[in-house]
C-alpha cells in the first residue's frame, strides 16, 4: 500500500503537496515526527525558505538520521521539491556557506542569468529538458521541453553531471532535477505544474 510521508519541518506549504498526492489517488501522511516514517512507502521533502533555516529545522527535530535511514538505508523512494532538492547537496551558498544533507555531492549557488531582461528570482513556467538516460523514469511519458513552474533564486550544481536528470535554461543552463538511485529532486514544483507535474509525481510514486 502506497503512503507518502510529507515531511513537516516548519518550512512552507505542505498543503499543496498533500492535495496533489491525494488528487493522484494516493494517501498522503503529514509527518511531523521521524517516527511517522515507518508507516510510509515514499517520502517527499517539500520546502520554501532559506537553506540554513531549513537545515537547522531538520536537525532540531531529529529528521536527519531518520531520513538517511529511511531513504538511503531502507531505500524508500525520496523526492525533494525546490528547497527540498537543494538540501540534498553537500553545501548551500544562500546567505553564507552552509552544510546540506550531502546525499548528492554538489553546491547550491545563486542564479546569475546572462542576458538582458532576465530577472532573479526565476519565477514562472519554463521548459524542462530531461537528460536522456538519466532520472530513472521520473520524466517517463513527458515530451522534451514541457513547461514546469519554478520559483527560486538558487540552483543545485551537482559535482557529478550524471546526477543531473533534467536541465532548464534561464540565461544559462541549470539543473532542474537530480537523481541518484531512488533519491530524486526537482527544482520546479510538480505539485503546482498541473498535468506535467502530476505526471512526474505519478512516475515517482510508480
Amino acid at each position: 500500500m502506497k503512503r507518502v510521508a510529507i515531511i513537516d519541518y516548519g518550512m512552507g506549504n505542505l498543503v499543496s503537496v498533500v492535495n496533489a498526492v491525494n488528487a493522484l489517488g494516493v494517501e498522503a501522511l503529514v509527518a511531523d515526527s521521524p517516527a511517522d516514517l515507518g508507516r510510509a512507502s515514499h517520502i517527499v521533502l517539500p520546502g520554501v525558505g532559506a537553506f540554513a533555516d531549513a537545515m537547522r529545522n531538520l536537525g532540531d527535530r531529529g529528521w536527519i538520521p531518520a531520513l538517511e535511514e529511511a531513504a538511503l538505508g531502507q531505500g524508500k523512494p525520496f523526492l525533494g521539491i525546490c528547497l527540498g532538492m537543494q538540501l540534498l547537496a553537500a553545501t548551500g551558498m544562500e546567505h553564507g556557506e552552509h552544510k546540506g544533507l550531502g546525499w548528492i555531492k554538489g553546491r547550491v549557488e545563486r542564479l546569475v542569468p546572462q542576458g538582458e531582461g532576465l530577472r532573479v528570482p526565476h519565477v514562472g513556467w519554463n521548459a524542462v529538458h530531461p537528460v536522456p538516460g538519466a532520472g530513472d523514469g521520473l520524466f517517463h511519458g513527458l515530451a522534451d521541453g514541457e513547461d514546469f513552474y519554478f520559483v527560486h533564486s538558487y540552483a543545485f550544481v551537482p559535482e557529478d553531471p550524471a546526477h543531473c536528470a533534467a536541465v532548464c535554461d534561464h540565461g544559462g543552463l541549470f539543473c532542474a532535477a537530480v537523481a541518484s538511485g531512488r533519491v530524486f529532486g526537482t527544482q520546479f514544483h510538480p505539485e503546482k505544474s498541473q498535468r506535467a507535474g502530476w505526471r512526474v509525481l505519478a512516475n515517482f510514486l510508480g
Partner: peptide
C-alpha cells in the same frame, strides 16, 4: 496553502517585515 504572500500597506509601514519574511520563507515567497 499559499505558495507566496503579498503585503502592501504593512510592508510600507513596517519595511523590516519584508526582510523577516524573506529570511523565513525565501525572497521568492
Amino acid at each position: 496553502g499559499a505558495d507566496k504572500i503579498t503585503i502592501n500597506s504593512a510592508a510600507f509601514r513596517t519595511p523590516e517585515l519584508i526582510g523577516q519574511g524573506a529570511a523565513m520563507f525565501g525572497s521568492q515567497a
